[in-house]
Amino acid sequence: MLEIRNLHATVDGKPILKGVDLTLDAGEVHAIMGPNGSGKSTLAYVLTGRDGYEVSEGEVLFRGRDLLAMTPEERAAEGVFLAFQYPVEIPGVPNTTFLREALNAVRRHRSLPALDPMEFMKLARTKLKALHMNDQLLKRPVNVGFSGGEKKRNEILQMALLEPALAILDETDSGLDIDALKVVAEGVNALRAPERATLVITHYQRLLDYIVPDRVHVLAHGRIVRSGGKELAQELERTGYAAFTGEAA
């Protein structure tokens, strides 16, 4: 599904990723953990093609294709989804308009007919219900005036609608209470399927009680310094990151 090979990236000329290697197979869920500033979000942005995140070395294959050669919207249409650490507000644009526009853009890419507003609302309501979310979320402008938890739920709603092949969740758990955390986990678990994969970026082990990962990677100083099974997350919780960042230096 996803093969990251020796990935180096700079932001403002400053090297942030310094040789990341990671292979994620279809059907798997991997977790990336690491201290603040270790480059987790940078990795997410590089994978999704954000301007200003320059790849200086290495390659990324997504389903065998060169991911880095695609525009952000092509990557999205090919099935790469990022749940943002800080979801963005778009004043004046109703959430429904935004979501339908996004879904139809992706459907067009897949040669599926566009959904009209009625069809879309029906689908959106089903997804909302499955995620125990309120209809009101759809009417309000995108993320404007949303609480932290609502913003994160909205990301999960988008993910549920777009049904990505590869979902990247960037600290979707931070700042969530336990109920919201369960919603996020449910959303991710519902998408678990042999043809999909998920990369869960998190600072805490807590989320991984609900989304049990196949592999856990520790990112420090722009490199994956250790990989292991789900028990690695528990070990981290006990020992803290210090031991790992020491290793990486």
């Binding site: 999704t48 093609g49 778009i90």
Partner: peptide
């Protein structure tokens, strides 16, 4: 750039993203 990238990450082309954000601004 945040708004445009957010839209593009959802599959919306840059031009459509501009139209969307500006329509919101004018709503």
């Amino acid at each position: 750039d945040d708004q445009l990238f957010y839209c593009r990450q959802r599959g919306i082309s840059e031009e459509d993203a501009v139209a969307l954000v500006v329509n919101g601004f004018c709503r």
